[in-house]
Write a protein that binds this DNA or RNA. Structure first.
Lengths: 206, 206
DNA sequence: TCAAAAGTGTTGAAGATACACCCATGG
DNA sequence: CCATGGGTGTATCTTCAACACTTTTGA
């Protein structure tokens, strides 16, 4: 019972060109050498699980201030060929504007569409799917979508985030009404003029 | 990093006389000697987390076929004075009809109202509150309430379960309409005649 | 015949959905 | 002046909340 080791793995998600993407890192070491895997690693003796996840995100994905939430703990005795390793899975959200560069100790980090993943190491595919489901479910009774946007954003950008996560188009008028009625965004006196008609910027409020 | 030990702890819930109750066990050993704690214990090297929870429920609470769901993993480095122990928390539901007896290796098991707990060992109070919150949230978008009822039940009994979990009275007509429209219960051709007007029995369907 | 729990419908409010056109700007 | 994405309102339907009386039985 003392021979169990504990890792954290993090599903880092962002929106890239209208699709939900997850960051994966190509493994250098065995097992699953050259396979893609989630950023993550062993929990240190003196750090909390959340701190371990934050540390791994910084070390392996080069990202710092993200929305982070514990997902589920995967503990099948056969899930890791090296022995008994349970993993506490997290998911994290970053705006794609602060593009995470590949970290230092990871050979190769890359974004993949959450619905079109390469073969993954361990049970990591299941973990990504779990994260996607959780995010979809939380989308409309929480403000979780804001983790995927920069501080200032247009309502169209927010709608694209929702569409990417839900995998379906939404009606512009209904979407805007719902968001505004919830009172969780407030318009600021700035406009993004990106060639076309300028779009009003909003901020996540309170 | 290998010195982390892993336990499971289970919040076993039932409805007793209209209130949500949790099963607690008085600890014999240090630390927290004589304090109440959740049933649980160390995960064995060859068992999954779910299996560990099922085993502990059988050993410590004497219950067998229950609804069981993983809750959250608590991993604060200071949460256990004996050293680094993380716990994967579960919650489980039993109908109060199959009253669990106190198990064998537990000195003293007893039911306590979930809203009026004695002082608990470790961070177990937080875990019970987390379980209560989860159950409340899942109540109306899942069928989770059925775990607390025997196979055959009346709609009034089902309503009492919901009221106990939510902590508020519900309108009988609205409740029955909603449940029946969901199509998750089906009436059977049996009536419970308990002194008053006989009540139709239902079964959880499909 | 009384006490106790079972059972049953309607109305109004709020929220969700469907749907189409005009506007401001840069090129 | 045209192409592009920004922005707006209404009608309908569905869902939820409030609300009170009749029925069946055992004592």
């Amino acid at each position: 019972m003392t021979a169990i080791r504990v890792t954290v793995d993090i599903v880092l998600l962002t929106i890239r060109d209208g699709h939900l993407n997850a960051l994966l890192i190509k493994r250098m070491a065995k097992p699953f050498e050259n396979r893609y895997a989630l950023p993550g690693g062993f929990v240190l003796e003196q750090e909390s699980l959340d701190d371990a996840a934050i540390r791994e995100l910084r070390e392996e994905a080069g990202v710092d201030r993200v929305y982070l939430e514990q997902l589920y703990t995967f503990g099948d005795p056969e899930r890791d060929p090296r022995g008994r390793v349970i993993t506490v899975a997290y998911y994290a959200l970053v705006p794609h504007t602060q593009t995470p560069r590949a970290g230092t100790d990871a050979s190769d980090a890359a974004w993949f569409p959450a619905t079109d993943l390469p073969p993954l190491a361990f049970d990591h595919r299941e973990i990504v799917e779990y994260a996607h489901t959780r995010l979809r479910n939380k989308l409309d009774y929480t403000n979780v979508g804001f983790g995927l946007l920069p501080e200032k954003f247009t309502l169209t950008e927010l709608q694209l985030v929702h569409e990417a996560i839900l995998g379906q188009r939404l009606d512009k008028r209904n979407f805007r009404r719902k968001i505004i009625q919830k009172g969780i965004v407030k318009p600021i006196k700035e406009w993004r003029r990106t060639g076309r008609k300028p779009a009003q910027l909003y901020r996540f409020g309170r």
